[in-house]
């Protein structure tokens, strides 16, 4: 059923438009003065002001690999992240840890670990699925490059972004 909306009946001075113009200009000039006097917060001036200090705790930026207290790479190349990654951005080449290595009991480590940052959708599933707490989404958001090759983060770069992380559950330490 159609709803009939009654047109408001305007007073004679409302028909003149002029009071409406004055009222409208009060609004626009109010905004103008507020913005010019700096009372109103406006857009962040990006390259000078960065997001870094203002990012929320749960922000999901670039994924990165971390090392533990003993500088051991936490990744054991189980490839779960590679399999769960929705856009298939992760490529892992596992390798066996030689028996004379200090961490031979861990058995496996990644030989190559590439994340294609053009493909990555920052969903955080890799972090969620990792049984070793080896991959984390950091707060880096300005991932740039001038070629496709540059946008692929290799193992070295991933550890550089991730750095060392302490206070995690340690499955493998010198004792165990």
């Amino acid at each position: 059923m159609a709803i009939v909306v009654k047109r408001p009946k305007l007073k004679w001075w409302e028909h003149l438009y002029l009071p409406a113009i004055v009222g409208g200009m009060r609004v626009t000039l109010g905004h103008l003065i507020k913005t010019l006097s700096g009372k109103k917060k406006v857009t962040m001036q990006y390259p000078e002001e960065k997001w870094d200090e203002n990012l929320p705790e749960h922000y999901r930026g670039a994924p990165a690999l971390v090392t533990d207290e003993q500088d051991r790479e936490r990744c054991v190349a189980c490839q779960l992240c590679e399999f769960i990654c929705p856009p298939r951005a992760i490529t892992i080449k596992p390798e066996e840890i030689p028996s004379d290595d200090k961490w031979a009991k861990v058995e496996k480590r990644p030989k190559a670990f590439d994340i294609d940052m053009i493909r990555c959708i920052y969903c955080g599933l890799c972090e969620e699925v990792c049984p070793e707490q080896a991959i984390f989404l950091r707060k880096d958001y300005a991932i740039t490059g001038t070629s496709r090759e540059e946008m692929v983060h290799d193992k070295e770069r991933l550890y550089e972004i991730g750095g060392k992380r302490v206070g995690l559950v340690n499955k493998w330490n010198g004792l165990k």
């Binding site: 626009t28 905004h31 103008l32 507020k34 913005t35 010019l36 109103k40 406006v42 857009t43 001036q45």
Partner: peptide, 10 residues
């Protein structure tokens, strides 16, 4: 500039 200021932009 004025349009931006009226719309709370820079």
């Amino acid at each position: 500039r004025v349009s931006a200021a009226i719309q709370d932009r820079v």
